[in-house]
C-alpha cells in the first residue's frame, strides 16, 4: 500500500513562511564604556526594535487584523515578552551555553556575569536546553513560527477580550495549523503536544524577564524607548 499523502500545509503556515521578518542587529554603542549599563541599554534598544517588528509580523497572521484594535492590543500586550524570549531561544539553539540576543550580540556565562546579564542568562538557558532536547533545530523554520502564533493567542478567557468568539476562531485556525505541522512528522506524532508542553516554562521565563526589566526601569539608570516602556507597563 502506498503511504498516505502528506496533508498540505495550511494557508497560515505557508503564509508565515513568506512574512518572517528580517534579522535585526544589536549594534552596541561603541562610545559607551563596557559594563552593565551598556549591556542593558543595548538589550532595551534591541527589544524596542524587535517589538516594532513583532507588531508588524502579527498583522500578517491571517485573521489577526480582523480582530478589534483593542483585542489586538490585549493579545500583543500579553504575549510580547514570550515571543521575544522564544526568538532568542531559537537563535541560541546552535550554541553551547551561549545566549544569542542578536547575531552580533552573543553572550556566554562569563560575559553575562561581567555585564549584569547573569539573571537573564540563567533564566533563559533551561529553555534553550529543553528545546535542544526536543531536537528542534531541524524544524526551526516552521515550529518557531507556529509557536509564536500560538503565543499570540492564549486562552481568551484568561484576559480582557472584547470579542471572545473572534479570538477563539483565530485560536482554532492556529491549532489546525499546528496539527498540520504534526502531520508533517509521522515519525513523531505527538510533536505538537510536546511543543505546547514547553509553554509553561516559556511563560515562566518571560515573566522573570519582565520582572527583571521592570526593576531596571524603576532604578531609572538605563534609557528605554517609549514602546518598550509602554509594553512593560502593560504587564
Amino acid at each position: 500500500m502506498a503511504p498516505p499523502a502528506k496533508k498540505p500545509l495550511t494557508k497560515i503556515v505557508s503564509h508565515l513562511l513568506v512574512v518572517e521578518p528580517e534579522k535585526i542587529y544589536a549594534m552596541p554603542d561603541p562610545t559607551m564604556p563596557d559594563g552593565d549599563i551598556k549591556a542593558l541599554t543595548t538589550l532595551c534598544d534591541l527589544a524596542d526594535r524587535e517589538l516594532v517588528v513583532i507588531i508588524g509580523w502579527a498583522k500578517h497572521i491571517p485573521g489577526f487584523s480582523t480582530l478589534s484594535l483593542a483585542d489586538q492590543m490585549s493579545l500583543l500586550q500579553s504575549a510580547w515578552m514570550e515571543i521575544l524570549v522564544l526568538s532568542i531561544v531559537f537563535r541560541s539553539l546552535p550554541c553551547e551555553d551561549e545566549i544569542v540576543y542578536a547575531e552580533d550580540y552573543v553572550v556566554d556565562e562569563e560575559q553575562a556575569r561581567v555585564s549584569g546579564l547573569l539573571d537573564l542568562h540563567v533564566a533563559i538557558l533551561p529553555l534553550v536546553r529543553r528545546y535542544k532536547k526536543l531536537r528542534m533545530e531541524k524544524e526551526e523554520f516552521l515550529s518557531n513560527r507556529l509557536m509564536k502564533c500560538s503565543l499570540l493567542c492564549p486562552s481568551p478567557d484568561s484576559m480582557h477580550i472584547e470579542n471572545i468568539e473572534a479570538v477563539q476562531r483565530l485560536q482554532d485556525s492556529l491549532h489546525e495549523a499546528l496539527q498540520d505541522f504534526e502531520g508533517q512528522h509521522p515519525e513523531d506524532p505527538r510533536r505538537a503536544g510536546k511543543l505546547l508542553m514547553t509553554l509553561p516554562l516559556l511563560r515562566q521565563t518571560a515573566t522573570k524577564a519582565v520582572q527583571h526589566f521592570y526593576s531596571i526601569k524603576m532604578q531609572g539608570k538605563v534609557p528605554m524607548h517609549k514602546l518598550f516602556l509602554e509594553m512593560l507597563e502593560a504587564k
Binding site: K11, K59, H60, P62, F64, S65, A70, M73, E230
Partner: peptide, 20 residues
C-alpha cells in the same frame, strides 16, 4: 488607549492586512 499610544499607532498604521 491613550496610555498605549505607540502600540495603538503601530497597529493602526496598517500595511494592507492579509486576507487569505
Amino acid at each position: 488607549k491613550e496610555k498605549h499610544k505607540i502600540l495603538h499607532q503601530l497597529l493602526q498604521n496598517s500595511t494592507s492586512p492579509v486576507d487569505l
